[in-house]
Amino acid sequence: MTALPIAAPAKRRVPARVLPGFNLTLGFTIFYLCLIVLIPLSALVFKTFTLSWDQFWVAVTSPRVMASYRLTFGASLIAALVNVFFGLLVAWVLVRYDFFGKKFVDALVDLPFALPTAVAGISLTALLAGNGWIGQYLEPWGIQLAFNPNGVVIALIFIGLPFVVRTVQPVLEDTEKELEEAATCLGATRWQTFSRVIFPSIAPALLTGFAMAFARAIGEYGSVIFIAGNMPMVSEITPLIIIGKLEQYDYAGATAVALVMLVISFMLLLVINGLQTWQRRRSGASS
């Protein structure tokens, strides 16, 4: 028997907060959160304050860093858009149709979550390099998918796919067939039913999945660096800039760029949270 002081058995009347452990669990949660996440992240902010505004500005807007932002955000945007299209397609096929091996395909969707990013990076490179399985057929046509920005986009598509599928899939499962039947009875074509009835109900989930895939892609490092070629100004992503500055012991510069990324990812997190609230409200209102 554990002698826990919070579980006072003598109380006959049920108090408002009947379950014990509030102080313990909340206290531990906040303590651990501060220790692992908040204090280390605040070190980033304080370290940046040791720079003057001009130093900071030069560090985060030098041409090489600007080029890396363009690549990171551009490639992440393209990859997230591709994922919206194919993610919706895969979710649609998995929810609406029956085919051989469907369970296997469904399980495989999560592979990018489970496969270490470095492994994804080297195997995509092995496939797409000039002598690789796919690359050897593309090279005669002058198409190069590895060691340039194309490779970055492909690695980011791989990383982001499950986000869209897994946010759209449950919403698609919950859409009511009756609405579609009603639309059909009222004379709508299948495409009209999709674009006016089904699509509006899954749009919030699709947008959430897009934002999550985009946010993940911006910070991604492991899968990208093998396939990108990492040429300064051309195929160098922002996380790699941070690593490069660290290796040259330019801690202040690395911190400044990292702070920019941290602020952007925090804003994206707020956007995603807002989207999810919107999605919940939408699905709550419809049922």
Binding site: L38, L41, A215, P239, M261
Partner: peptide
């Protein structure tokens, strides 16, 4: 805040 580490780049 619990979700925060998900959106922070691993390098950061």
């Amino acid at each position: 805040l619990v979700d925060l580490p998900f959106s922070v780049s691993p390098v950061v």
